[in-house]
């Protein structure tokens, strides 16, 4: 069977009942999706399946023949961060980083579906994602900022890859 992973067609040889999370990490060496609880309760393994966020630990890979799977690796690169990733950097929304891939993937889907900067709506959309550092406030702030794109410049120049230029006042 085949899936399209981050835009590239990949053949899968794992048995069909293997959780997608294990296929990604063990067969395809794509490790941004994290094995947290492996019971659907923490959100760290979340990936996009045909654009919708889904728990890879609860998804039997056999149900995905022909599907498009997007992981954090498919959203941006170190040189060219996505809007959500830049907002996470700017708002210090990662502490240990374990939940971050799932948070960024879910936040991306939320914004792609037209999500606003309403913090209650963001909390509801991200309600299945646990941060063991309890850094929720900065994560929600980052997603709200990405929704309005108001508090920072979304471009990072190649000369200054680690500097995010803040243009909005606070």
């Amino acid at each position: 069977m085949n899936i399209t992973l981050n835009g590239v067609s990949r053949q899968i040889s794992s048995p069909p009942l293997t959780p997608l999370l294990r296929v990604l990490r063990n067969e395809l060496n794509v490790v941004s999706a994290k094995a947290g609880c492996e019971a659907g309760g923490c959100g760290a393994c979340t990936v996009l399946v045909d654009g919708r966020p889904q728990r890879s630990c609860l998804t039997a890979v056999g149900s995905l023949n022909g599907a498009a799977v997007t992981t954090l690796e498919g959203l941006g690169t170190s040189e060219n961060l996505s809007a959500v990733q830049q907002a996470f950097v700017h708002h210090y929304a990662a502490q240990c980083g374990f939940c971050t891939p799932g948070m960024v993937v879910a936040a991306t889907a939320y914004l792609d579906a037209g999500g606003s900067d309403d913090k209650e709506a963001i909390q509801e959309a991200l309600g299945g994602h646990v941060c063991r550092c309890t850094g929720y406030l900065k994560i929600v702030n980052a997603i709200a900022a990405a929704a309005t794109q108001s508090e920072f410049d979304l471009t990072i120049t190649a000369e200054e890859p680690n500097v995010v230029v803040k243009t909005g006042g606070r």
Binding site: P16, L17, P19, E38, A39, C57, L58, A60, S63
Partner: peptide
């Protein structure tokens, strides 16, 4: 029977369930 997978897949991961025949209903 494997429907959405939210119950069955975690039971397999945890070793509580070892299917010999599986019916996936996704299609």
């Amino acid at each position: 029977v494997v429907g959405g997978g939210t119950i069955v897949v975690q039971l397999m991961t945890q070793g509580w369930l070892r299917p010999t025949r599986a019916l996936m209903l996704s299609k």
